Simulated scan of single mutants.
Amino acid sequence: MAELWKSLPSWVRNIVVPILVLILAWNLLWFVVGVVGALLGFLLKVLLVVGIGAGVVILVKKAAKS
Rank of each mutant, 00 (worst) to 15 (best):
L28I: 02
I15Y: 02
W11P: 14
G53P: 08
W5T: 02
V16M: 09
V60H: 00
I19P: 09
I15G: 01
V12K: 07
A2P: 04
V21H: 02
E3Q: 11
V33T: 03
W5A: 08
K65Y: 02
P9D: 12
G51M: 11
V16Q: 10
N27K: 12
W30A: 04
W30Y: 15
V36E: 05
L29T: 10
V57R: 13
L59F: 07
A25Y: 02
V35P: 05
I58E: 07
V33R: 07
A63M: 06
N14E: 15
V17A: 00
A25S: 12
V56T: 07
L47T: 12
L39T: 13
K45D: 06
K62M: 06
P18V: 05
W30I: 15
V21A: 05
V16I: 15
L8S: 02
N27F: 07
V46P: 00
N27L: 15
A25H: 03
I15M: 00
V36S: 10
V50N: 08
K45G: 07
V36K: 11
K61T: 06
V56Q: 02
P18L: 07
K62T: 06
V33I: 14
V56P: 05
L48A: 11
I58D: 05
L47D: 08
I52Q: 03
K45V: 13
L20C: 10
E3Y: 01
V32T: 09
L44Y: 04
V57G: 00
L20F: 13
L24N: 07
W30M: 15
V36M: 00
V46N: 03
L47K: 04
R13W: 09
V33Y: 06
N27Q: 14
G55V: 01
A38I: 08
L4S: 04
V56C: 09
W26L: 15
L48W: 02
K61V: 13
L59W: 08
G51E: 01
E3C: 09
I19T: 15
L59D: 00
K6C: 09
A25K: 01
S10K: 12
K62L: 15
G51Y: 08
V16K: 04
V49A: 14
L24V: 04
W30S: 10
R13Q: 15
K45Q: 10
W11L: 13
L59G: 11
W26P: 00
V50Y: 09
V21L: 13
G41I: 03
F31E: 01
V33G: 05
V21Q: 01
N14P: 01
L22T: 10
P9N: 14
A64M: 06
I19S: 10
L4M: 12
S7T: 03
S66T: 03
R13H: 05
G37F: 13
L40Q: 04
L48S: 12
I52Y: 01
R13Y: 12
L20M: 11
R13T: 05
L48F: 12
W30K: 07
G37V: 11
V21T: 03
G34Q: 02
L48G: 08
G53H: 11
G34K: 01
V21R: 11
W5H: 02
L4G: 01
R13E: 01
G41Y: 04
L48P: 00
P9R: 11
V12S: 00
V49T: 03
F42N: 03
L28N: 09
V60R: 09
